[in-house]
Design a protein around this nucleic acid. Structure first.
Lengths: 164, 164
DNA sequence: TTGAATGCAAACGCTTTGCACTCGG
DNA sequence: CCGAGTGCAAAGCGTTTGCATTCAA
């Protein structure tokens, strides 16, 4: 499942926010610092959750993150994963999205962007923000402003031209 | 909550599908016929659910529909409302959408279209399809085709220019 | 009549919460 | 040390399901 359609941008917080030892530091320490910078106590569990989700631009469910942590032999409770994800989302470190009624997925890419949604696998892929532009856009209801604009392109495998 | 942003199109099945007595028939009978045409036994409960949802272009949750039926003194079980909505959606008479992780809403407008989503009230408003056009659109993953393209514009009340 | 649809309540899956225990600063 | 964070299990909430009863054709 290589993401050749993933966004090109880096999901990291802006580099200026981490003026200290940044160059040779392993990911885990960088994550811990990010958590700290956002007012979160970088506990072992939180760092693991954030590390898995934020290591690269991905979309994961709480269950997937839980599974991945436990696969490594570590112990985390389901509640902690959910609570951690909620706090990370509140603090703006990750983004919660819900294109599927069954479950939420968490997106490590925090800048607003659009998604391909594979209807068969449920998989999500980022769309490069530069690949979408509007030539016509509706007037907004009076007194309101657009917080975000999200485009979802639901994909289905192309029907091989059957001899109909 | 007048929908000046509602789509202009009619959500009915195509008129040619109903060659019989159509002109003077009250809504309830029209609904019953539509159900029948789609292979659904038009029971009292189903007609009520469909009638409420399809009377005009709206977006309603299962709970809202249940409440509206019961407000009129009629008896329907929650399960029947959910089951009916599921069948209506399967048969293409309504459309299930989920922009909110908490609940599904059912949309009486079945042609693909876009939505304003009021982040404060949770309310949805249709966007006229003619009010949205793309000037740039991403290349789709190989072998895939776009089943639908959905744009969601999440709205927030404009911040009155406070004297900050 | 008779299979399909309904109603109720129990089951379900995802997420949150209450509370005692533990850990990080 | 001490409050924030964790873990477990129980509770919540929207939705589905099992089964006996009822209804539409």
């Amino acid at each position: 499942m290589s993401s050749e359609y993933s966004a090109q941008h880096r999901p990291d917080v802006d580099p200026s926010a981490d003026p200290s030892s940044n160059q040779g530091t392993p990911t885990r320490d960088r994550i811990a610092q990010q958590l700290h910078l956002h007012g979160l106590k970088p506990t072992h569990q939180r760092v693991r959750v954030a590390e898995i989700l934020m290591a690269a631009p991905t979309h994961m469910t709480a269950e997937q993150i839980l599974a991945q942590i436990r696969k490594g032999g570590e112990r985390v409770s389901k509640a902690t994963v959910y609570n951690t994800l909620k706090v990370l989302a509140q603090r703006g470190l990750v983004r919660q999205i819900h294109l599927d009624p069954e479950r939420s997925v968490y997106d490590s890419t925090i800048v607003p962007h659009h998604h391909f949604h594979d209807l068969e696998t449920g998989e999500l892929k980022d769309i490069d923000p530069n690949d979408i532009a509007f030539s016509r856009f509706p007037t907004l209801p009076e007194g309101m402003e657009a917080e975000v604009v999200e485009v979802v392109i639901r994909l289905r495998r192309k029907r091989a031209a059957d001899g109909a």
